[in-house]
C-alpha cells in the first residue's frame, strides 16, 4: 500500500502556495483559476437533492465510498466558490471517513479565507464543509452497522 498523504500535509501544501502571493488580487486570481480547472459535475448529478444550501450561489456535492476512502465531486455556478471547493476536495478527497470527520481545516484561516466560512457570506462554504463531514459520518455509520 502506498502511503497516502495526510490531510494536514495537503493543507500545508495549499498554505505554502498561498504564501507566494503578495496581494489579495493574486489570491483571488489563483482561486478563480482553481475554480475554472475543477472538472464540471456531470449534469445527472446537478439535481436538487445534491444541492448544498447556500444563499447566493448554488453548490452541488456528491460523494462516493470505495475501498474505505471517500471521494468527493462538486460544482458551483459561481467560480470563486468553485475554487474554494476545489481546495476542499484536494484536501479531503481520498481519505477515510474518520480522517475527514477529524479534519480541522485550519488552512482556510491560514490563507485568509475565513470570511468565506462566515455565515454572513451565505455562500455555502460553511455548509459545504458540514455536508462533506456529514457524508463521511454517514459512510462511517454504514461501515459500523455492516460490521455488526
Amino acid at each position: 500500500m502506498t502511503a497516502r498523504p495526510r490531510i494536514e500535509e495537503l493543507e500545508e501544501e495549499i498554505v505554502e502556495n498561498f504564501s507566494l502571493f503578495d496581494s489579495w488580487d493574486e489570491k483571488y486570481e489563483y482561486i478563480i483559476d482553481l475554480g475554472k480547472k475543477l472538472p464540471p459535475l456531470e449534469d445527472e448529478h446537478k439535481k436538487d437533492e445534491n444541492k448544498v444550501r447556500g444563499c447566493q450561489s448554488t453548490v452541488w456535492l456528491v460523494a462516493a465510498y470505495k475501498d474505505g476512502l471517500v471521494e468527493f465531486k462538486a460544482d458551483s455556478d459561481a467560480v470563486i466558490v468553485k475554487g474554494l471547493i476545489s481546495m476542499l476536495i484536494q484536501v479531503l478527497s481520498g481519505h477515510t471517513p474518520e480522517e475527514i470527520i477529524q479534519a480541522k481545516l485550519g488552512f482556510i484561516d491560514r490563507i485568509g479565507m475565513t470570511t468565506h466560512l462566515a455565515q454572513t457570506r451565505s455562500n455555502g462554504l460553511a455548509a459545504m464543509v458540514k455536508q462533506m463531514k456529514n457524508f463521511a459520518l454517514a459512510f462511517k455509520l454504514q461501515n459500523e452497522s455492516a460490521k455488526h
Binding site: 447566493q56 450561489s57 455556478d77 467560480v79 470563486i80
Partner: peptide
C-alpha cells in the same frame, strides 16, 4: 459572470 463572484472581487 455570477453576481457573487463580482461582489467578492469588488469588495476586495
Amino acid at each position: 459572470v455570477h453576481p457573487q463572484d463580482l461582489g467578492i472581487l469588488l469588495d476586495n
